[in-house]
Design a protein around this nucleic acid. Structure first.
Lengths: 107, 107
DNA sequence: TAGCTTTATCGTAATATTGCAATATAAGAA
DNA sequence: TTCTTATATTGCAATATTACGATAAAGCTA
């Protein structure tokens, strides 16, 4: 066991959970916040800013990329990771909808 | 080594990540959605609706309660779990802020 | 009291996540 | 070509998460 039973939930529920999982680590929050403040972003930069080892940063970037929040473009030997605006707004909307559709109830 | 280095991140970053972690499971999304649709909520109800075993539901409810999103009130032998409106709006704001403070950048 | 119902906790197994050292890859500089 | 720099991948250890059967606790009902 220990494996999430995704099949018993809706696509929307799984998608939102998947997105939340990417945000469920302070390093990835920090990475996204940092990238959003830059004009461009070099990964090596992140190692210093975040304070985790280079392979660890690389893995976190990959998690973020997997749900489409980052676009990476090689600029020579350097890499420019940037936020995908469309996907960003898509997730923003998904979280907004989730938080909005809650009724005032008992207690 | 498998343990998140929370101390190198800000309180805000850790808090948001912690909240996201609770939403990072479709069962907990489903539980919150279901509770929000009810006037009251009995846990036994959730076992049927969600489709996970009773101890598993109980554990998920506990995770949600830990970040203050649920208030539980015993009504005799039954339990009424309800969403804490204040905390809900607090997290809604936190996610809203996070998603809003992203600059348009390169690529 | 004894039995029933509801929820919590314990124990355990399977799997996932986090982190990093070592190493690989790839592209520019000398 | 060799050296350097930047990023990715591999392998592994430590820890966390997910799930559930068994059982406990607590409050009804008869």
């Amino acid at each position: 066991m220990g494996v999430t039973k995704t099949h018993i939930f809706s696509v929307q529920q799984n998608d939102l959970a998947q997105a939340a999982k990417v945000l469920a680590h302070p390093a990835r929050i920090a990475i996204l916040e940092h990238i959003s403040k830059q004009e461009a972003c070099i990964c090596n930069d992140l190692v210093d800013v975040i304070g985790l080892a280079q392979p660890t940063i690389s893995q976190h970037l990959n998690e973020i990329k997997k749900i489409g929040l980052l676009k990476g473009t090689f600029e020579g030997k350097n890499l420019c990771y940037c936020i995908d605006q469309d996907r960003w707004m898509e997730l923003q909307q998904a979280f907004h909808d989730f938080f909005s559709n809650i009724n005032r109830n008992c207690c």
